[in-house]
Amino acid sequence: MMDRREFVRELLVDRGDLLVVPGLGSATYDVAAAGDHPLNFYLWGAMGGTVMIGLGLALARPDRRVVAMPGDGDMLMGLGSLATIGVKQPKNLVIVVLDNAHYGETGMQPSHTYAGIDFAALALACRFKHARTVARLAEAADVRALLHSGDGPILVNAKIDAEDVPRVLPLRDGHAIKQRFIEALNSA
C-alpha cells in the first residue's frame, strides 16, 4: 500500500504536457496537492464520468497524452466505460485508479474493491492494451513512464492507504476550471 499523496506527486513529476482529469473527492485533492496546473480539469462532481471525460479529450486531442484519475468509487460507478473505451482503443489514454478500497468522502465505508473486485482484470477483459495493479511506491516511476509513452488504452490500479489526509482544495468554479484548461491547451 502507498501513501496517496506521495504516489500522485511521483506520477506528476516533470509532467510536461500531460492533460490530467482527476475524479471528484480525494483524487482532485491529491492532484491539487501535487501542484496546481491549468491542464488539470478538477472534478467536484460527475461521479462515474471521469474516464469518459478522458475519452472525449483523448479523441479530440490524439496529439496529447491524457490521464484520467478516478477513485475506486468513481470507477465502480462507470464500469461500463471500460467497455466503451475498449471499443474505441484510444492510444493516448491512461486511467490510474486511486484505489483505497473505501468511500472516503462519505465516512470510509468499504467499496467493492475491498471485497476483491479487480479493475486491472476488468480492463484486460475490455481489451485494454495493458493493465496492472501497483502497490509499492517504487513502481511509481514505471507508471510515470506509461503515462508519457505507453500504448493505450492502459489502466493502472494503484493500491493506496485508506488513511485520512488533509484536504487540498483547488478551484471550484466549473466555468473557471474549464476556461483555464482550454486557454492553456490552446496556447501550448
Binding site: F41, G49, G54, L55, G56, L57, L59, R61, K178
Partner: peptide, 13 residues
C-alpha cells in the same frame, strides 16, 4: 457516459 464524452470533447476543442 455520453455526458462525460461531450465535456471531454469540448475541453479538447
Amino acid at each position: 457516459e455520453g455526458v462525460g464524452l461531450v465535456a471531454g470533447a469540448a475541453l479538447g476543442g
